[in-house]
Amino acid sequence: MHEMALMGEIVQLLEQDAINRKIDAITRVEVKVGTLSNVLPEALEMAFDAYKLQPTNRLTETAQLIIHIEQAKAVCVICGQEYEPASRIAQCPSCQFLGGRMIAGETFQLLAYEGS
């Protein structure tokens, strides 16, 4: 359960920021997950639900997790075509060249949160 550790990182970042702003109750968290970031959205939701129930952080029990998915995109280094690779090993659909340069899909960001 890699996502449990990653959610731990998110909760830590939220706590650091919320302390400074004197926010005691976090009601909504938004993240961006690339399709090739090795993060499973379902597992992330499960981890979020587990953290919500812990009294040691500022997430409220009804807090929502919004996951924005970033579609993977690669550029072929040979012919320059932009395409959506099916996996990490990007193969260009026009010239078949392997090893396209990834320009999107590897992101895993904490975008924003809401609280009071």
Partner: peptide
């Protein structure tokens, strides 16, 4: 209140 962060989740590790 809404707070925009836009940080890498692994910021502290990095």
């Amino acid at each position: 209140m809404r707070i925009e962060l836009e940080v890498d989740v692994l910021t502290n590790n990095n």
